[in-house]
């Protein structure tokens, strides 16, 4: 019947609210301490190669950035080696002219678009800048891989794959 909050009820609720606030503050603090720091591991800008070194029919691998560089319509593309499926290192296969993942056999075309296999998207691109004819790869800026769909370049598989049974 009574609608106003009595003293006991006020105290009981106050304690619970206080405990909740302290808990939330603790959780936030722990989260802030433990969340990943961008500078760990990859993350920096890597001066990768001269622009004219980047091929148009193939790719070059930049070890320091874990990146493949290739060219598409005069634009340099940097593709992270990490397979969007489960994180294995995707290898460039020269004989077939495509990227091939050793873990579950996902394949991607030269500019990283999805071709086959269980990967949900194409390869993830890094930000690229060109400073005085030098390609710089910003490994801190990982883009989303393009969704599976029609490929925008017409480069079919040109030979035998490097992975057996795929």
């Amino acid at each position: 019947m009574k609608h106003e909050i009595g003293r006991r009820q006020f105290l009981a609720r106050g304690w619970k609210l206080g405990a909740l606030l302290v808990g939330a503050a603790g959780a936030w603090t722990s989260w802030d301490v433990l969340r990943s720091r961008a500078e760990a591991g990859l993350g920096g800008v890597v001066r990768a190669a001269r622009v004219d070194e980047v091929p148009a029919e193939s790719t070059i691998y930049i070890r320091a950035a874990q990146t493949y560089l290739t060219r598409h319509e005069d634009e340099v593309i940097a593709l992270w080696q990490r397979c969007p499926h489960l994180g294995c290192r995707v290898a460039w296969c020269e004989s077939s002219g495509q990227f091939e993942c050793p873990c579950h056999g996902s394949t991607f075309n030269r500019i990283g678009e999805y071709r086959s296999g269980p990967s949900p998207t194409g390869l993830q691109p890094f930000g690229v800048g060109v400073v005085e004819d030098e390609v710089e790869v910003d490994t801190g800026a990982v883009g989303r891989g393009p969704p599976p769909g029609a490929e925008t370049i017409d480069e079919p598989v040109r030979g035998p794959t490097c992975i057996e049974g795929a």
Partner: peptide
Amino acid sequence: DFVPIFGDVIRETLLGGTQVGSE
């Protein structure tokens, strides 16, 4: 990664970075 919405955050918090490393 494939946990909806929080996927990236969960993985990067577990790893302490974008990939397996010293952290």
